[in-house]
Amino acid sequence: MHVHALAWIVLAGIILTMIAVDIIGHVRTPHEPTLKEATWWSVAYIVIALIFGILVWAVWGPQYGQEYLGGYITEKALSIDNLFVFVIILSSFRVPRKDQQEVLLAGIVIALILRLIFILAGAALIENFSWVFYIFGAWLLWTAINQVREGAGEDEEEDEYRPPSIVRWISKIVPVTDGFVGSRMLYRHGGRTYVTPMLLCVIAVGTADVMFAVDSIPAIYSLTNEAYLVFAANAFSLLGLRQLYFLIDGLLDRIIFLHYGLAAILGFIGFKLINHALHTNELPFINGGQPIVAVPEPNIAFSLGFIVVTILITVAASLAVSRSQRGGEDSAA
């Protein structure tokens, strides 16, 4: 896939325009989005991402169009897990509801920059060291196991969010205000510049996403090796998170099988990565450095179908069981 510099410029222009629309149309006037507003904007961001996929299909062909679509759906599914952490972060910092849009947007922009660095680094590794797929695959399989354990309640996490090390470090060496000062991130008073909890929360949101990038970026590299498509899928999935947060804020607890669905997706992709590494094996201590092609590699259409079906089954089963449980509680009451 040959990506002209103009294609990167167009993608950057789309992303910057979306961020500008968010800032001018939503964040500049602090308010709590209504369900209707969040729904329409969530749909709009998904439509924009799909239109971009159509452009990829038209310019570079169906193979790359499917690779982008598979990557976008995967990133969108995995990004739902981010929302659990975002809910905890914002509630822990006690961010006023009307200011949460600004925190989320600023944190997502930070996350987008960090992910671009990760993606370019990953592309360089894959281009020069094919054995990195073994590491990516093993990591995703381990992550899948952890998702199952979390779903089973074996890994009970604390309800209170603890900011990452960088946030705790900043709070120790920089004066911090006792509370929020409107939506300001820096506050000048008495000749001193103070950091507000708003800035610390933005840093927490941005750095927390790095943990998810470690899982999601290797996952999408199993679907496409093109850094352009990887970044586009990441960008469109991340930029839609703010609206999605307000849309499903009260519904996350109903998707009770989310961890199992994500585990199935990550497990499948981890297997796919390791299988691909075996097909392109160059490590001398594995089969004498010769490829192992005993198991055929699933094509992009099969991978896309598996991801979509898994998501549909996870959501349908979760909502059905949640509805049944609520019905039983109502009857008992």
Rank of each mutant, 00 (worst) to 15 (best):
A106P: 02
I113N: 06
L125S: 05
A111K: 03
V103Q: 07
W139K: 06
L120I: 15
I110T: 09
A106D: 01
L141I: 13
L112Y: 03
T143W: 08
L140V: 10
L141S: 07
G107I: 01
A77S: 12
I126Q: 08
I119A: 11
Q100T: 04
S92Q: 01
Y72K: 02
V85Y: 06
A138H: 09
F133M: 14
E67R: 04
L105V: 11
S79I: 07
V103K: 04
I135Q: 14
L125T: 03
E102Q: 10
Y64R: 11
G137R: 08
G137T: 10
L114V: 08
F136R: 14
E75M: 11
G122I: 13
L78A: 11
Y64T: 05
I73D: 10
I73M: 08
F129G: 02
L120D: 06
S92N: 06
R94Y: 00
Y134I: 06
L90E: 06
A77F: 13
G122K: 12
D81I: 00
W139M: 13
W139L: 12
L105T: 03
F129P: 00
I89E: 06
G70H: 07
G137M: 06
L140D: 09
L116T: 09
A106Y: 03
S79T: 12
A144M: 05
R115L: 08
F86S: 02
L140I: 11
L116P: 05
L112F: 04
E67K: 05
V103R: 03
L140E: 13
K98N: 10
V132E: 08
A144H: 04
S91C: 02
W131N: 09
A138Q: 05
S92V: 00
G137Y: 10
L116Q: 12
I135L: 15
D81S: 01
L78Q: 10
S79G: 12
V95M: 00
S92E: 00
G137D: 11
T143V: 13
S130Q: 15
F136A: 15
G65Y: 01
V85D: 07
Q100R: 15
R97T: 09
K76V: 00
I73F: 13
L116W: 06
A111E: 02
I145D: 00
R115N: 14
T74I: 02
